[in-house]
Amino acid sequence: MLQLNRDDLVQAYIRMRTIREFEERVHTEFAGGAIPGFVHLYAGEEASAVGVCMNLEDKDYIASTHRGHGHCIAKGCDVEAMMKEIYGRREGSCGGKGGSMHIADLSKGMMGANGIVGGGPPLVCGAALSAKTLKTGGVAIAFVGDGGSNQGTTLESYNLANVWNLPAVFVVEDNGYAESTASAWSVGGSQLKRAEAFGMPGREVDGHDFFAVYEAAKEAVDRARAGKGPSLLHVKLNRYYGHFEGDAMTYRADGEVEALRETVDSLAAFRARVTETGLLEGRQLDDIDREVAASIGQAVTAAMSAKAPGEEDLLTDVYVSY
């Protein structure tokens, strides 16, 4: 592996831990009734977002899914502003106008979580086209779920990215379920054969292994940056929570989630790898765990006491000028 130095590894771990902690707290707070609307949690999938985004800079763009918190954190969005947004606060990332499903920060290259399944891939073609036309050297990454992988928008984007030879990467995060329906049933053919059919390389990756994701993404991102066109990663992983909070998950097997938490935990796997090889020490990681927990706690406290938007905000931000 490693083009990743110790600082990078620390950074990767902080981001993964932040995602986990963020989602666990949102789960708890949502259950307590403090958070309005819907939330879709990314816990369990951390290695995918972070493994991909560790290859990216601010000039690179990503587009996300309903399950966007992890991608936002991995791409460098402000965590406290995200928490405030989820609470619908005026100081939230989007002034309380977007909520969980629409957190975005274009200055960080984050084009938004997306309430429309399959909404992101066409947008990513556009960001990749901007990079190519403006010669920024940037790339653009579309995260889609196994559900989104069946949308025509996604498949049309595979084609467009190919015929325009765009610096794009499609990351299919296959957590086994599109809402309550198993991807084993809903996906015809295979993700990799779809990539091949559209003329681009595809790789299957263990989505709980940060290092595997990082390396596969590096290959795809390097290829895109070099002007060699798009590629696809089929990232297999698991989600620890339901499609949305409140989902009783009656479609899952008894004990399935508990077993997953025991056996496939990307954070535990990362810790084992870096401590066993002596790259980082356990104590360092323990410190990070404590610091992250404290900062998430602080974000929740800040979000709870932050102001809601007021009547003066109702009509603003629709147009630049009207």
Binding site: L106, M111, P122, L123, C125, G126, L134, A140, S157
Partner: peptide, 10 residues
């Protein structure tokens, strides 16, 4: 969609 994405990115 690509046009929308391109418009948001420069």
């Amino acid at each position: 969609g690509a046009a929308a994405g391109a418009a948001a990115t420069g």
